[in-house]
């Protein structure tokens, strides 16, 4: 389909599978996303916000979930990241959104994770942020950052 501007596509989408517990590949999706945004000529301060949000979301999956699909979509106005995981879910979202709150194990903390900054940091860097979670099933994050 050719849109009104005579172009074929209105967005660019990539999906990444993230494996829970696989610390070796952690951060790969956010690195790829950064590369794409740089080639699209997106402003560097926006790229930084996307990078931080994507990386924190990716790390949450690696640390807590079984697996997840990260979908990244960029249009001329918006960068959208959806992370849909299969995992334990979050019983109390309000608590999880508080800075400094963390359920990380001592091992995770030893590696520099689990300062309780993950979700609040994602929210801080997003223009639109939504979180849905079902205990025992998984968590879904929506992160949107606008390109002005």
């Amino acid at each position: 389909m050719i849109n009104s501007q005579g172009r074929m596509h209105s967005s660019y989408t990539q999906t990444y599978k993230i494996q829970g517990g696989n610390i070796y590949n952690a951060g790969k999706a956010s690195t790829e996303i950064k590369k794409i945004l740089k080639q699209l000529g997106i402003d560097s301060t926006i790229i930084r916000r996307v990078a931080i949000a994507a990386y924190e979301a990716e790390m949450n999956v690696v640390m807590y979930a079984k697996s997840a699909i990260l979908t990244f979509e960029v249009t001329p106005t918006t960068i959208k990241i959806v992370v849909d995981d299969e995992g334990p879910g979050i019983p109390n979202i309000e608590l999880a959104m508080r800075e400094g709150y963390s359920t990380a194990t001592p091992e995770m903390r030893e590696m520099g994770f689990g300062a309780g900054m993950g979700l609040p940091n994602i929210k801080k860097n997003a223009d639109n942020f939504k979180i849905d979670s079902i205990v025992g099933k998984g968590t879904k994050l929506l992160i949107e950052i606008y390109i002005n």
């Binding site: 501007q5 172009r7 074929m8 596509h9 209105s10 967005s11 660019y12 794409i36 740089k38 080639q39 699209l40 000529g41 997106i42 960029v74 249009t75 001329p76 390109i147």
Partner: peptide
């Protein structure tokens, strides 16, 4: 240099 200075065009070129 990005693929294109215009983001919509850059998206097109990315495809």
């Amino acid at each position: 240099e990005p693929l294109d200075k215009d983001i919509a065009m850059a998206i097109e070129k990315m495809h």
